[in-house]
Write a protein that binds this DNA or RNA. Sequence first.
DNA 1: GTAACGATCCTC
DNA 2: AGGATCGTTACA
Length: 185
Amino acid sequence: MIPTMNRRIDRKFFVGDALDIAPALLGMELVIPKNGLRESFIITETEAYRGEEDLACHARKGRTPRTEMMYQTGGVLYVYLVYGMHWMMNIVTGIQGSPQAVLLRGVNDIEGPGRLTRSLGIDKSYNGEDLDSSHRIWLERTNFNPPYKATPRIGIDYAGPVWKDKPWRFITEGRNLSGNYTTFS
DNA sequence: GTAACGATCCTC
DNA sequence: AGGATCGTTACA
């Protein structure tokens, strides 16, 4: 299966600041072909994790085997397990050596980062997958620019007063996205 | 080797 | 409110 012409998001987009990319992802289409059929989901909730200074970011302790992926050039996936049960799907952003990623927390109509990966079949095998060239997962542009709000990130109270309150979670506003957008196709 | 800790979700 | 469940990390 081939992404529809000119709509696929390429590497350039991902080699930027997680704080810009996280909200820009809202309304974009996540495409995952299944059994030769096109399955796609509109992104509705994201969170930015940016740099070793960000005490909520896994890279706060520097390079480790797990965080190595966050140091790569933007556009690859960073997938890891939390609480022994739930896969978390992140899109790495920034230039090589700058550890950043955007956590995908929700798509239309799946709320929650763990439910999202479970529904879409994302697991460890997607760690390092390249959104710029992969044939099993990629992003496409839409003409949908949903309104959104920014709030503190979820589940990172351990990060301390400065970092836990940064409004780096981005979530679309409005109940039912269905019918509120159209894709170019 | 040992132990503590989660970027969560489900059930009570 | 509490349990599930296990990879990652730090430390002895």
